[in-house]
Computed example of a mutant assay.
Amino acid sequence: MKQARKALAMLPLAFAVLLAACGTANKEGDEAASAEKHAEGETGHADHGKIALTAEQIAAAGIEIGRPTIGGAGTIDLPATIEGDPQGMQVVSAAIGGRVVSLTRNLGQSVNRGATLAVIESREAAQIKGEVEASRARLALANANLAREERLFAQRVSPEQDVIAARTAATEARIAYRQAQQQVAAAGGGGGGLNRIGIAAPISGQIIARSVVLGQTVAADAELYRIANLSSVSLAFHLQPADAGRVRPGGHVLVTAPGRQASARISFVSPALDAQTRLVPVIATLDNRGGQWRVGETVTASVQLSDGGNASNAISVPLTAVQTVEGRTVVFVQTSDGFRAVPVTVGNASGNNVIVRSGLKGDERIATTNSFTLKAELGKGEAGHED
Rank of each mutant, 00 (worst) to 15 (best):
P241M: 02
P258N: 09
A236Q: 05
R248F: 14
A244T: 01
F268R: 13
S234A: 14
A257V: 04
T277A: 00
V255E: 05
V255C: 09
A262S: 07
G259L: 08
L273V: 13
H238V: 12
P249S: 11
P241R: 02
T256F: 14
P271E: 07
A257E: 00
H238E: 11
S267H: 05
A257F: 00
G250W: 09
D274A: 03
V255R: 02
D243M: 12
V233P: 07
R246Y: 09
P258G: 12
G250N: 10
Q276S: 14
L273Q: 13
G251M: 06
V233M: 03
I266G: 05
P249Y: 00
G259V: 12
R265F: 00
F237A: 01
R260L: 08
S267P: 00
R265G: 14
A272F: 12
A275F: 08
Q240M: 04
S263Y: 14
A272C: 03
A264N: 00
D274V: 08
R246P: 11
I266R: 06
P258V: 04
A257W: 00
A257L: 00
A272V: 15
F237H: 03
H252L: 11
S270F: 04
R248D: 13
P241A: 13
G245F: 11
R260Q: 07
L235M: 01
A244F: 06
V253L: 12
A264L: 00
A275P: 03
R246Q: 09
V269M: 01
F237I: 01
G245C: 13
P258D: 08
P258R: 01
V255D: 05
V247C: 06
P241I: 08
L254E: 15
A262K: 00
R248L: 07
G251W: 06
A272S: 15
D243Y: 04
S267V: 11
P249F: 11
Q276T: 10
G250A: 12
A275R: 13
S232E: 06
V247Y: 02
A257M: 02
A264M: 00
H252Y: 05
A262M: 09
A257Q: 06
D274Q: 04
A236S: 14
A275D: 15
G259A: 05
R265L: 14
Q276H: 12
S232G: 07
V255Y: 07
D243R: 04
L273R: 11
V253Y: 03
